[in-house]
Simulated assay, not measured.
Amino acid sequence: MNSFAKISAVHLDTKHRFSKESVGEIELVAGLGVAGDAHSGVTVQHRSRVRADPTALNLRQVHLMHHELFDWLVQRGFTVAPGELGENITTEGIDLLSLPRGTLLQLGPEAVVEVTGLRNPCAQIENFRPGLLRNSWAMPMVGRS
């Protein structure tokens, strides 16, 4: 299945922090992810996954989130801006949560990423905004950029 995503914002961080800085553009590197981002790499980069098996394939090279999530959170009393939940790409108008694994998602005129699964919200969300964890949707993750 091929899908096209409208991009509303892009983000990266060179360090392993919860939120990512909004930037004007990012570069997707095939097989690695977002150039310069702490989670870029062939093998896992998330600290907990590195501790479990540092040789495991990185299926979280590019983290996507739908802008509609932020609107939904506002209705529940949370103000969260794009990038603050750690995504690399904020999309609009595409139901990321319904995309099956293996979907090829067109991002702009050249980049295509493969959806590798959904990422469940982690406990760090609770430290960021108390009460947010129980109000979060599953978050898409993408590998193999």
Rank of each mutant, 00 (worst) to 15 (best):
Ala81Thr: 14
Asp37Thr: 04
Ile94Lys: 00
His63Asp: 02
Leu132Tyr: 00
His63Ala: 02
Gln124His: 13
Thr43His: 03
Gly24Thr: 08
Asn120Arg: 09
Ile89Glu: 15
Glu110Cys: 05
Ala123Cys: 13
His11Asn: 13
Leu85Lys: 00
Asn58Gln: 10
Gly36Leu: 00
Gly131Val: 06
Arg51Asp: 11
Gly117Cys: 12
Glu110Tyr: 08
Ser136Cys: 15
Gly86Trp: 00
Val112Asp: 02
Asp37Tyr: 04
Val113Phe: 01
Leu73Asn: 09
Ala30Tyr: 08
Asp37Trp: 01
Leu85Met: 08
Gln61Asp: 12
Thr55His: 10
Pro82His: 11
Ala5His: 05
Ile125Cys: 14
Gly36Trp: 00
Arg119Val: 07
Gly36Glu: 00
Val44Leu: 05
Met1Thr: 12
Gly31Ala: 14
Thr90Glu: 11
Gly33Phe: 01
Gly77Tyr: 02
His16Glu: 15
Arg134His: 08
Leu32Ala: 14
Pro100Tyr: 05
Val50Pro: 07
Val112Ile: 14
Ser48Pro: 00
Lys20Gly: 02
Pro54Arg: 11
Arg101Val: 15
Leu97Ser: 09
Pro82Thr: 09
Arg17Asn: 11
Val50Ser: 10
Asp71Thr: 11
Gly24Tyr: 01
Val115Thr: 02
Gly102Ile: 06
Thr91Glu: 10
Ala9Trp: 12
Arg134Tyr: 01
His67Trp: 04
Leu97Tyr: 10
Val44Glu: 04
Leu32Asp: 10
Gln106Cys: 01
Trp137Tyr: 14
Arg49Pro: 00
Asn2Met: 09
Ile89Phe: 14
Asn88Arg: 13
Asp95Gln: 07
Thr79Asn: 05
His67Ile: 06
Thr55Arg: 09
Leu59Pro: 03
Leu118Asp: 09
Gly31Leu: 13
Glu92Met: 03
Val62Cys: 04
Ala9Gly: 15
Gly102Glu: 04
Ser19Lys: 03
His11Trp: 06
Met65Val: 12
Ser40Ala: 15
Asn2Asp: 15
Gly117Gln: 09
Val44Trp: 04
Glu92Arg: 05
Arg49His: 05
Phe18Trp: 04
Ala9His: 15
Met1Trp: 06
Arg144Ala: 11
Ser19Arg: 04
Arg47Lys: 10
Gln75Val: 03
Glu84Ala: 05
Asn58Arg: 10
Leu105Met: 13
Leu69Met: 10
